[in-house]
Every structure is written in structure tokens, then in C-alpha cells.
Amino acid sequence: MIVTAAPSFKQVVREIWKPLALLFVWDVIVTITYFLLPFRAPSLPLTLFGSALALFLGFRSNSAYQRWWEGRGLWGLMINASRNLARQARNFLPDDEALDMKRTIVLRQIAYVNALRCQLRRQPVDAEVHRFLSKGEADFALARTNVANGIVDGTSRRINLARQNGWIDTIQQTAMESVLIDIANAQGGMERLKNTPLPNQYRFFPTIFTHLFCILLPIGLVETLGLATPLGSTIAGLMFLIVLAIGDDLVDPFANTAHDLPLCAMCRTIEIDLLQAIGDEAPEPMKPDKAGVLW
């Protein structure tokens, strides 16, 4: 996620130079053709086309941003639920008998959020997951199709074992299980966003209509702008292409690009809070890179 007030100039140029160059070349071709072979093009149909397209792209961008913000809200719930689970494990379980169990539950939650991050980004499970699980625990979770869910199931079994050993009562077990339910619900919402793209009509038709509009735009403007057509038409067409790109950038909040949610940073936040909750040394928060992107 870009966290600076304005994206870097290099980032902007890298993303727009190709469509900008194509638009400019096409606009120059239309302008030269107009002066060699003058023609007239009605402007009203193009105006109506542009107005309808702007509304269509606006609805699409709003839908994409709603998905992006819902993903951020679900990760906010995950951060809070992780803190709640660590606090319950620290306060409910006795220090003398269940110290290892307490630490295991907290460390498993750190491994869980990192495993979920990898799943949402379609990446293999990385070292951050193995670092907080013992080999036997890691092997059991990695054998599952849904690794993150396997880690949560293992945590639930440990909470049940703590109740069987008399370290917590049924009321405390119910409270901890309710937090695990919140965690599972948040994961389910994230998986829904990841596995359910925008309807095909919201992806295919805006792309076709936007490119068609950019092709027709200089034809409708050249009679009015004349030699300034390459400049004016290119800028106007680029605005529509940028709005189209905004929807593409936001529609998948877990795609691991500069415009997506900073899952690594949020996992680090959880790691810091949970390690400090059990008195362990915690790493520093993640910072944006040189391009102002927080991953």
C-alpha cells in the first residue's frame, strides 16, 4: 500500500507511460489524417458515450474500493481477535503449570496470520510460519489443504486440552473459542473476497468501452482542437484509462502489489503485540520502502 501523501514520480511514470505513448501516437495519426483528408465527426454521440462511460467506471471503482475497504476491515478484526486470544491465554492459563501451553497458543496465532497472508497472496508458506511452530506442529498444519485453518484447529485442540487438565474452566474455554470463531469468520470473509472476482460484466465491458472511447476521442475533438488534439485528447483519454486502472488495482486487496493491503506490516503488528503480551522481545514495526510502499 502506498502510504506517502503522493506516489513517487518514478512509480507514476512506470504505470502510465505505455498507455500514454499509445494514446499520443494514435492522436497524432488522427490529427495528421484530418489535415490531409479533412472530415467531420458529430460531437454529440461522443459526449453521450463519454458521460455514460464515466458513470459506468464510477460504479466500478466504487465497487472495487468497497472490496478493498472490506478486506482492510476484516484484517482489523483479525488484529483485534489476535490480541484478545493472547490476553485470554496469558490471563486464564496458570503460569506454573501451563506456561508452555500459554506460549504455544500465542506463537501459533502469529504463525496463523502469516500462513493466512501467504494463502491470500497465493504464495508458498514462508519461514515466518515455520519460525513459530515446532516441526511436528508445522507438519500437521502443512498436510492440510487450508494451512491457516489447520493451525486454528490445532489451537482449538490445545484449548480443549487445557480445560481437560483443569487449567481453565468451561466458561473460559467458551470465551476463548468465541475468539477463534471471530478469527475463522474473518478468514472466511477474506477468502470470499479473494475467490470471488467482480462479475464479468464489470471487468470486460468497461475495458472494451474505455478503449473504444479512447480510439474515438481524437476523431471527435480534432475539428475543434486542431493541432492541439494530441495534447488534449491524450490527457482526456488518459483520465478514463486511469479510472479503469484504479478499479483493477483495488478489486483484489490481497494481490501483493503496491496498491494492495500491507499484509506483511499487519502481521508484524500482530507479532509485536503478541510477543510483548507474553514478555518476549519483539521486532520493530515495518516501515515503507524507498518508493513509499508498505508491504
Score class of each variant (00 low, 15 high):
N62M: 09
M1H: 11
A282P: 02
A186V: 06
L227R: 05
P42N: 05
K10W: 08
N84W: 05
E271P: 04
L46C: 03
V179C: 03
D252T: 10
I208R: 09
A111M: 02
C118R: 02
A52G: 15
L36P: 01
R67M: 08
P206H: 12
T229M: 06
V293G: 08
G232M: 11
T31A: 09
D289R: 08
L36H: 10
I215Y: 14
V222R: 06
Q11L: 14
G232D: 09
N80C: 01
R14Y: 06
G76W: 01
G166A: 06
E271Q: 13
P285C: 04
A236R: 02
L193D: 08
D280E: 15
D100C: 02
L85P: 06
L294G: 10
T155N: 03
E223F: 00
K10L: 14
L216H: 09
L107V: 00
F59S: 07
S178F: 06
D96G: 01
L85I: 10
V28S: 08
G76T: 08
P262E: 07
A148L: 03
H211I: 10
R117L: 03
A86E: 06
A245N: 11
L48N: 09
R108M: 14
L198E: 12
S61T: 14
M101G: 13
D248T: 06
N62A: 14
I110F: 02
Q109M: 11
P197T: 08
Y202D: 12
P285K: 05
F132W: 15
Q164M: 12
A143V: 04
L85K: 01
I16K: 02
R122M: 09
L198H: 05
L120G: 09
L74G: 03
S156F: 02
A277I: 11
R83A: 11
L120F: 04
G237T: 01
V113H: 04
D273L: 09
A81W: 07
F92H: 11
T33F: 12
M176D: 02
D248R: 14
E271R: 05
A184P: 00
I235D: 08
I159F: 15
K10D: 12
W75L: 10
I242N: 02
P199F: 10
F140T: 13
A21E: 00
A89L: 04
V129C: 09
L221K: 07
A6S: 12
L275N: 12
F9K: 12
Q119F: 02
Q109L: 09
E281Q: 14
E191C: 04
V243R: 12
P288F: 09
V251Y: 00
T234Q: 09
F209N: 00
N160A: 14
G154C: 03
E97Q: 13
Q201F: 09
L244E: 15
S134G: 15
A175L: 13
L55Q: 06
L74F: 11
A86V: 03
T224K: 13
T33Y: 10
D280P: 00
T170P: 00
E271T: 07
P38S: 11
R90S: 08
L227S: 11
I183G: 04
L263P: 10
I2V: 13
V293D: 02
I32P: 01
A86G: 14
L274D: 01
S178L: 12
D96E: 14
A81C: 02
F24V: 15
N146D: 15
N256D: 15
F204R: 04
G292C: 05
Y112T: 05
G237S: 08
M1F: 08
I79T: 13
L217H: 05
A236L: 15
